[in-house]
């Protein structure tokens, strides 16, 4: 499935719920798959007593990965040309995240049609945890 330039206009949005009540086990799962074993994400004792945080928290890249799922569901498989984010707040176990892509531009470069998207992920309190952009090939 892919997007058609003729169906899109600036300001169009696509939203998805990324996760509900994020579990610590998913942080373990992401650590194992990505190879990032920073104890801040899986080791509550270390994170509370040594690092000084209230609990373990999600890898920024887990939030980026889940947000990427919203994007590929929207633009289609293998269609992204750019995807970049800033991690603006930490994500904690128990968080529920929602993500929205908003069309900011449509263009054509060397015969390739492209859509530019603004990307924002927020938690259950409406606090922005990730802000970024993506670009994808469209039909």
């Amino acid at each position: 499935m892919s997007l058609k330039a003729s169906d899109l206009k600036v300001g169009d949005t696509h939203s998805e719920r990324l996760v509900e009540d994020l579990k610590r086990t998913q942080l373990v799962q992401y650590a194992g798959a990505s190879g990032d074993y920073n104890p801040l994400h899986t080791d509550e004792l270390f994170t509370v007593k040594v690092a000084g945080y209230p609990s373990v928290f999600a890898h920024g890249m887990l939030t980026m990965g889940m947000t990427g799922r919203m994007l590929t569901n929207h633009v289609g498989d293998g269609r992204l040309t750019k995807y970049g984010v800033r991690f603006t707040s930490q994500v904690w176990p128990g968080d529920t995240l929602d993500s929205t892509a908003t069309v900011t531009g449509l263009s054509e470069v060397d015969g390739v049609k492209l859509v530019d998207l603004d990307v924002v992920t927020v938690n259950q309190n409406g606090v922005e945890v990730l802000k970024g952009y993506a670009q994808a090939r469209i039909d």
């Binding site: 104890p39 040594v50 890898h59 920024g60 992204l80 750019k82 970049g84 991690f87």
Partner: peptide, 19 residues
């Protein structure tokens, strides 16, 4: 290794030339 774990990831950007 990561010392007290004080290092955090602030930004990440990808450009895909192919998947």
């Amino acid at each position: 290794g990561g010392g007290n774990g004080g290092g955090l990831h602030a930004e990440q950007h990808f450009e895909y030339h192919r998947h």
